[in-house]
Simulated assay, not measured.
Amino acid sequence: MPDSNALSRRTILTAAAGTVAALPLARLAHASPLDTEVIQTDGPFSLPPLPYAPSALEKAIDAQTMSLHHDKHHATYVKNLNDAIKKAPAEWQTKSIEEILMNLDKLPADIQEAVRNNGGGHDNHSIFWTIMSPDGGGAPTGRIAEIINSDFGGFEAFKAKFDEAGTKRFGSGWVWLVLNEQKKYEIVSRPNQDSPRMERQIPIMGNDVWEHAYYLRYKNVRADYLKAWWNVVNWDQINKRVAAAETR
């Protein structure tokens, strides 16, 4: 008998792909970073535009996936986060997402789960879009190259360990390079949309291993997606994140 969960997932993904496929081809191929239909919502948080066209990362991620991932998934996290944070005391309305995620236990109990899931989703994706680029890929340079060589034994060893953590993440989640409280760099994976900030870790670079990040092109072969992702990694932006983290 067919797996009903697999059939359900396939049906959802096929329908989603059809929705994006129905958009004009010019919309997908030549859209500007600001040309996105997003969920509008009232609240302190907003959906950041992609810093490139949805088709710009085709050497790793297809335009349909990028459009769905940003315009639908990320936008929904933003909407749900704003809906939840409205129920918090007034002082929470002006806090940054970093402050909120580092102090989840101080929120009213009835909104902690919603903020954890959707606040984490918003922050994780806001980082994710910026650490990729159509001009990315290749070997790391600058400070991040020094870290990779000294702490992880070189780029190939680093990639292998990073991809292993992403492959072994059961179900949905993320793999991250973080700077921990002891000022040490480490590779970690987190379930669902849990942010490293919840563990007082500073996220430097991360890859999304939820199926919606890769399923349209790579189906269930997560390892192929992880391997291809290195072709779009934006080392310049990652070096900026390292510099900011090390000066805290």
Rank of each mutant, 00 (worst) to 15 (best):
E186D: 12
L28K: 14
K79C: 04
N5Q: 08
Q64E: 07
N117Y: 14
G43M: 04
R10F: 10
I100P: 09
N149E: 12
H212W: 06
S67A: 12
E199T: 14
A228S: 12
P49S: 15
E156N: 08
I111Y: 09
L81A: 09
S8L: 08
V209E: 10
E199G: 07
P203L: 01
A75Q: 12
P44N: 01
K227L: 13
R248N: 10
P108Y: 04
S46M: 11
P51K: 01
I148T: 04
T14R: 12
T65G: 03
P48W: 11
R197S: 04
P89L: 07
F128P: 00
N124E: 13
S96Q: 01
H74M: 06
R222W: 06
G18N: 15
A56H: 02
H74I: 05
I202N: 01
Q112F: 00
A114R: 11
V38Q: 14
T65V: 10
E211I: 08
M66D: 01
R222H: 06
L81N: 08
L68Q: 02
D42K: 11
P33C: 07
R200S: 09
A165H: 06
Y214P: 02
V38M: 10
E246C: 00
T19L: 12
I144Y: 01
L68M: 13
V178F: 05
I12N: 15
V115W: 03
I148H: 08
F158S: 15
V178M: 04
A21W: 12
L81K: 03
V221P: 02
E156D: 08
L47P: 02
S55Y: 06
S133F: 08
R217C: 04
E91D: 14
G43A: 08
S126E: 08
F45T: 06
P24A: 13
K106C: 00
A29Q: 13
L25Q: 15
E146A: 15
T141S: 13
A15S: 10
A243S: 14
L13P: 00
A243W: 12
L179A: 03
D135Y: 01
D71C: 07
K168G: 00
